[in-house]
């Protein structure tokens, strides 16, 4: 029954080439730029070369971007009255949110793939074939709290501030998650604060697939917790919202 809804959502997502190109291509391009900068800034500093260090961070940035941008489309549809129209159909509010989340998660599959392709083909990063798959799978699953965060932004902001909230949120999360700069190149308090963000753990879970000395479990546990917390927040907000009107 909901396949028609999902199909149109997907087609509409594909119809925004600008946004799509930004989400899918930007992390890959940023990866290339960062590896070049870090190579000259910190030559041979750590045990791993820059293209390997930056790889997990940029795959993580890609899914964060895809997830959090869901909010904008939710806000636009609410402002345009489309959500009210949908409330006059058998599609439930939860169904609506799940559809939005699902399409966001589907889009989130691609940016890490592009980053991985650039890493492997352009920067010559070599991983076990299994590690590539584990990286993409873990970072993609780890994107779930960010899709939920996007939905929450969509539920709580309006047309005039959704852009600011999304952009500031993305940048803060990316910086404290060590996505743009490795946190060990920044003052220690960045790492301390980072522990309280889901983005830090998203980068960590991606690193666990690439770097042998990283454990997947703590990051996985924290991200599951974030998923539960944000999932409850979205559900609570939804109930609150429909009860108030």
């Amino acid at each position: 029954m909901k396949s028609g809804y999902l199909a149109l959502e997907l087609r509409r997502a594909l119809r925004q080439p600008g946004t799509l190109l930004f989400v899918v291509g930007f992390p890959g391009a940023f990866y290339l730029l960062e590896t070049l900068i870090f190579e000259t800034q910190i030559p041979g500093d750590g045990p791993y070369p820059a293209p390997v260090i930056v790889l997990p961070a940029m795959t993580a940035w890609g899914v964060l971007l895809a997830g959090m941008l869901i909010g904008t489309s939710v806000v636009n549809e609410r402002a345009a009255g489309w959500q009210r129209q949908l409330r006059l159909t058998p599609l439930s509010g939860v169904g609506y949110l799940m559809g939005k989340g699902a399409v966001g998660m589907l889009v989130a599959l691609f940016p890490p793939m592009v980053v991985a392709l650039v890493a492997g083909l352009v920067r010559g990063v070599r991983l076990e074939p299994g590690s590539w798959l584990v990286l993409l799978l873990l970072v993609w699953l780890g994107g779930l709290p960010f899709a939920l965060l996007g939905l929450l932004i969509g539920q709580t902001t309006g047309k005039d501030n959704v852009q600011q909230v999304t952009i500031v949120g993305m940048l803060v999360l990316a910086i404290f998650g060590g996505m743009f700069m490795p946190l060990d190149t920044l003052p220690a308090w960045f790492t301390s604060v980072g522990h309280f963000t889901p983005s830090y753990w998203l980068t960590e879970i991606a690193r666990s697939a690439v770097l042998p000395d990283q454990d997947v479990l703590p990051a996985g546990g924290v991200l599951v917790a974030w998923t539960l917390v944000l999932g409850s927040a979205v559900t609570w907000r939804y109930r609150h919202d429909s009860g108030r009107s």
């Binding site: 345009a80 009210r84 006059l88």
Partner: peptide, 14 residues
């Protein structure tokens, strides 16, 4: 029930 609401919108990209 079907309804035409006062501000019921259409999707812009469809």
């Amino acid at each position: 029930i079907g309804a035409v609401l006062q501000e019921g919108a259409l999707l812009e990209d469809a």
